[in-house]
Design a binder for these strands. Sequence first.
DNA 1: CGGCAGTTTGAATATTATCAAGGGATGTGG
DNA 2: CCACATCCCTTGATAATATTCAAACTGCCG
Lengths: 219, 219
Amino acid sequence: MSFIESYRCGVEMVKAGGTLIREHQSGGRLYTLYSGWAFRYKTLSDGRRQILNFLLPGDLVGLQQEFSDAALHGVEAVTDCAFCAFDADGLWSMFREHARLAYGVTWLAARGEGMVDDNLLTAGRRSAIERVAVLLVHLYRRLDRLGLAEGASVDFPINQQHIADALGLSLVHTNKTLRRLSEMGMHEISGGRLRLLNPRALARIAEYYDAIPRPVPLL
Amino acid sequence: MSFIESYRCGVEMVKAGGTLIREHQSGGRLYTLYSGWAFRYKTLSDGRRQILNFLLPGDLVGLQQEFSDAALHGVEAVTDCAFCAFDADGLWSMFREHARLAYGVTWLAARGEGMVDDNLLTAGRRSAIERVAVLLVHLYRRLDRLGLAEGASVDFPINQQHIADALGLSLVHTNKTLRRLSEMGMHEISGGRLRLLNPRALARIAEYYDAIPRPVPLL
DNA sequence: CGGCAGTTTGAATATTATCAAGGGATGTGG
DNA sequence: CCACATCCCTTGATAATATTCAAACTGCCG
């Protein structure tokens, strides 16, 4: 634990709606989300925005900023967020000196990529109603695994624009699809909470299969 | 170099059209593509397929198989391929004993994720013509960086079904869009080769910006 | 000369986007 | 306490985009 501390260079607080990493800003830092909801995104020059994935507590951000030669992504907070920051310049020495930690970083990175893979399948090949169903079930399960579900209901701070941007749909169509699902008795969103009323049917629409969850390494 | 060898457990040859990793098969191996073209993909139960990204020489595959709790992907060869296989069970000992290598693995993983991010932006937010343009420019540039371009022309072993599956479009629409681009004088595909006739205009349509490429670590 | 895999085309249909406008809650300043 | 501004959700109408279906065409290989 003490060496984790040595790499940590502090906590970064970001207000709801604020930006942790600006798009095209090449980083130098690695973050772990400690509390709150955030998301990674990319935009085209005319403003079309794609949310790459939502970040929940325990998720890692910023590795690509350090490594990638592909274009970069931004990170924005949905709610007030606390991020643990690590010095990415020290990443190499972390690999040399603390293999366990490095392994954890790689683990989290691979997990993150798996998430984006799923989202790409969704955006590329699912219909609007399937996409929305996937999103609802997926977020619910992630929160549930974090112990943040209260029965069938979870905190749900994102709005329909976020959902549209995550799924590659227009705002209007997202609204109509969401409405359709709730009229089918699938779910209910109100007061910033999501409640799944028929999780099995939703999962069937979403064709959402969970693999065996593994415990997340501490970081 | 000698310790790279110690982790290598041989070369795996896959014939064109053959499968390196079956979907839902949880791995235990890590691969580096040595020669040929391949792709990672996911399918839905009714057969809709999404290609997550194309693999070119130097790319890493299989890390998620080892780590991820998300659903898994398959890997299929487009042309005859040679993969270098590493024992993933030895991954942890690699991190402990050969930080340099482990760092390289993580580097490649992050690079791979960046690629999927781009593809998600494309599938989610670009129009058909933009998607096709992105694909052509992107593949051309990747090959060029590998020294595999001959002037404006590169080997192009994929067919329109591959392109459709990579972009989240139907085969028919992909065909019409491709045709439209070539009638605009953008490119030419014939005899298994792609030639970019107007790279600048294509890149403008694609809104494709390269970041500064960095040298790829050897593995 | 088939036969096959991949490409091309047209027509009809479905899905999704865009445009325009209204509604409801919440908050703020006068 | 009211007026009004803002943000988000909702709805209907219309248009654009992409899919599906069906069929023909091409080049290549045995």
